[in-house]
Computed example of a mutant assay.
Amino acid sequence: MSASVLTIVRAVIVRLLFAAHGIVSIWRLFVVTQDTRYWYLATALGLLFTEALVTLGKKGGKEWKWFCPSVFIYLLSVVPSIWFLEIYELDRRILVRENVTMSSGYLDNTAKDLKATLGSVLGVQLEIHIPISLTSDEWIRTLEQLLLLLLILGRGILPKGKLTHDQLSQLLLVYIGTAADIVEFFEAFKEDEVRYNKMLCLVILGIWSLSLLQFSIVLTAARARRDQSGLVPRVTTYKSSDNKVGCCQADVFGIMISIVLQDAPFLVLRMLLIFQYRVLSYTNMFFTSKNTLVIVLLIYRLVVVQLEKRDERNNAYSLAASQSFDSRSLRSYRTVDSGLSSESRDSKSRLAHDLSVSSNGFNDVENSKPTHIKLQRTTVARTLSLDDLDSNF
């Protein structure tokens, strides 16, 4: 199998996995709510199909360099479904807590399989059945964690495009760390102050959705945190123009996106839980300290990158100034040489001719003389030539 065919197969397999997870998420939402309007969320899968055709036709299955549109469209198909499921469960918890009269089916929280009846063909009943018995809350957590797992697995299977193998391996390691932070972020839902507060739940879902955008930006994950692991030493070069995106260096851009999309929002929310809602649990205090330390390290890294950039710029200016000085010195020498009088040039020619004749007349004697006498004669000739040059000034 050729490399191009294998690239296309890998691209198609990943998009099929994305589409399957999106369909299961929408299906679960329909089973819970029995509202057929939620099937309109599947239109995002049509965008995924269109994106696959464009990528396969224009790029031969290879991914784009800085942005991964297939991951972004995948998030568009799954994230809204999880939002609606979380809001549905939130309303259900609030109603149960307030002892509102409801049907027994509404209160049912037993583990159920996921089934769908497609009708009958020639007397045969067609049904899709996923034999996994989970409660409603477990289904949501499973879909959320499958989302992160497929983002990591999909990035590993997708053609690497312009990424090197070293960059891809570092990218996957950073994806795993980022996914672990996001999973830890959902630990906030276990706090009673959060589980029954609709505003806090919506804020958490919003921050969670914002943090997922990192997976669609290849630059952010590759540049922002790879130096924290210490796996690969950083090599500094003076060709900084190859390492820029827009107006900023790639490292600066990645660090800023990482802080804005994940670490800063996570820290703000956890500090809000501590100081406003008095959530002083061990997990919340630990993760708050962790986010604070990560932000401090990222800011320190940002300062180091800026200092390195300044040193590179100063070195480049020094090299350019040195080259300019050498070129000006050469031009000055040529100007002085061209400004010599004709008499000086004639005298230099006569002196060189006399030395040549003298040397030809005493070849045998010259060959028998020691080497230091030859060097003395050469030195005298050069001194006479320089004295003649100085006399013309």
Score class of each variant (00 low, 15 high):
A111V: 02
G177V: 11
T101N: 04
L118G: 03
S103D: 15
G119Y: 06
H165M: 03
D181M: 04
A179L: 08
Q170K: 12
Q145C: 00
L147H: 12
V121W: 05
I157P: 02
L114N: 00
G177C: 12
D166F: 03
I94T: 09
L118C: 02
T142Q: 08
T110E: 10
E184L: 14
L148S: 05
A111G: 00
A188E: 03
I130W: 06
F189E: 14
L172K: 06
K190T: 12
S120R: 01
L143F: 02
L143I: 05
L153M: 05
T164M: 03
V124H: 12
Q125K: 06
K190S: 12
L173P: 00
I130K: 02
E89A: 03
A116C: 13
L148V: 01
N109Y: 01
L171H: 11
E138I: 02
L149A: 10
E193P: 02
K160Q: 14
D192A: 15
I176N: 03
R155W: 12
V124M: 13
S136N: 08
S104D: 09
E193T: 06
E187L: 10
F186R: 09
M102I: 10
E98G: 05
L158N: 07
V121S: 01
F186V: 02
P159S: 06
I94H: 08
K160L: 11
G177S: 13
D91F: 13
E98S: 09
Q125R: 00
L148N: 04
S133C: 02
Y175C: 09
I128H: 04
L172P: 03
R195N: 05
R195D: 05
I176M: 11
L143M: 07
E184T: 14
G154R: 08
L151P: 08
T117H: 12
V121A: 04
F189Q: 09
S103M: 11
W139K: 00
W139E: 00
L153C: 06
E127I: 05
A179F: 11
L148F: 12
H165N: 10
I128A: 09
T142A: 08
I132H: 05
D137S: 04
Y88Q: 08
E127G: 05
E191Y: 13
T178V: 13
V121L: 14
F186L: 11
A188L: 15
Q125Y: 03
R141D: 11
T178W: 00
R195E: 09
F186S: 09
S120P: 01
